[in-house]
Design a binder for these strands. Structure first.
Length: 381
RNA sequence: GUGGGUGUAGUUCAGUGGUUAGAGCGCCAGAUUGUGGCUCUGGAAGUCGUGGGUUCAACUCCCAUCACCCACC
């Protein structure tokens, strides 16, 4: 039986060691490194599928937990699967619900069997297990499903981190046993909080289970960036070279490039679309809060030279006006720009890797990008 | 012209003798990393229409005056 998702390592940058690859799925190929826009509720907020294609998105992420609550995985299955339901014929990856165990921690109880959630919509009880997550994800029918994991918080005591990691490994095996769909790949997820030895153990343990790809979970949960980079450097050498690595939830421009530098192939993040709806955009010069009064009469595009729809047609003053009057198109225009920005950042990274000049690419990025107030955390300040 | 009403932050309004006059909206700024987010947090902003008076103390009570609104001539 052919594997549903295969990874081909196309080139290793001689200057940096970063990777360029090709991910082949039932719904087409993905050139890596890649940023995956997030469409939690079977839609990238404010965007349509043709618009996502136009800005160069290769694959979208959607969410098991949310879609299972509404409209329900049976509805999406009846619609002919998630691709048809949301009219997106390129690849999709579904998150397992594991992150909701973390982010909705006050509303759930974790046992070895699974997680008892309080439904955040109506308060009703809901049990999610590795098996049920697999069932739901197979009903949704994405190209890539993620294992149901336990994401440790930051900070986290060693014994707790170890217990979360070991449970994640047991659940990964249960996910593998429960996963039957031949046209869908299942990725395992590395945990281990902020302890290098645990991260290495997790990478080795999951590698032995032979998944077609590996998520790196539990990072960008509030820790300083340096610590995240240390963890990546420790664990990635213990993942197989011929499988894709997906750093979950990471999405500031600098973190994307630093991740690529350390061997990551895939990223997803809500940041670009979330800040867009609140009037902040990303540019090569750093973040730009277009909502601010200084742009009231600024008729330049959001980012000079950007090829996105927004920058080709509209001014900062206009976008600011729409944001400040609460017009939904304001959030749309900022989303279009931010998604295009990150997509283009990754396209440029891939090209630089293929041409063995990725270190120069990063250097050029930092030379222009104003890091002051650029989503820093903790000790980064 | 007569009678009544209203004048407090940019705006709509609270505040009927007692620290440094408040709220919503607006304005300004900050936050946002596997989305419980048209969200969250903070800030600036008022000679209380004006001028007198009573009082230990006045946005508050009294007088005058100005502006606006309503009713009636």
């Amino acid at each position: 039986m052919n594997k549903p998702v295969t990874y081909e390592l196309q080139h290793v940058c001689q200057q940096s060691g970063a990777r360029a690859g090709l991910l082949t799925t039932p719904h087409g190929q993905i050139k890596t490194p890649v940023y995956m826009p997030v469409g939690t509720q079977a839609v990238v907020k404010a965007m349509t599928s043709p618009e996502m294609k136009a800005l160069g998105a290769q694959i979208l992420l959607s969410n098991t937990y949310h879609l299972n609550l509404r409209p329900g995985s049976q509805i999406i299955k009846a619609a002919g699967g998630l691709h048809r339901f949301m009219a997106w014929d390129l690849p999709i990856l579904t998150d397992s619900g594991g992150f909701q165990v973390f982010s909705l921690a006050e509303l759930n109880k974790i046992t070895e069997e699974g997680v008892a959630f309080r439904n955040h919509l109506d308060g009703s009880a809901l049990l999610m297990t590795p098996e049920s997550s697999m069932q739901i994800q197979q009903d949704l029918g994405a190209d890539i499903a993620m294992a149901f994991d336990v994401c440790s918080p930051y900070p986290c005591a060693y014994e707790d981190a170890k217990a979360d990691m070991e449970r994640t490994h047991r659940w990964a095996m249960r996910c593998k046993d429960a996963h039957k769909r031949p046209d869908q790949a299942l990725f395992g997820i590395v945990q281990g909080a902020f302890y290098k030895d645990l991260r290495i153990t997790s990478a080795q343990t999951l590698s032995q289970m032979d998944f077609p790809g590996y998520g790196i979970g539990g990072l960008s949960v509030g820790e300083p960036k340096d610590i995240m980079y240390e963890m990546l450097e420790a664990l990635i050498p213990h993942l197989p070279v011929n499988k894709p690595r997906y750093l979950m939830g990471v999405g500031t421009p600098d973190c994307l490039l630093e991740g690529v530098l350390r061997g990551v192939d895939m990223f997803d993040c809500v940041l670009a679309t979330r800040i867009a709806r609140n009037g902040t955009v990303l540019t090569r010069h750093g973040r730009l809060v277009v909502r601010n009064a200084r742009y009231k009469a600024d008729f330049a595009p959001l980012e000079e030279g950007c090829d996105c729809y927004t920058c080709l047609h509209h001014s900062r003053a206009y976008v600011r006006h729409l944001i400040n009057t609460g017009e939904i198109t304001g959030g749309r225009l900022c989303s279009i720009h931010n998604l295009r920005y990150l997509t283009r950042l990754m396209e440029g990274a891939r090209q630089a890797i293929l041409e063995d000049r990725f270190l120069d690419y990063i250097k050029d990025f930092y030379a222009l990008f104003d890091m002051r107030g650029a989503f820093n955390r903790g000790e980064d300040q």
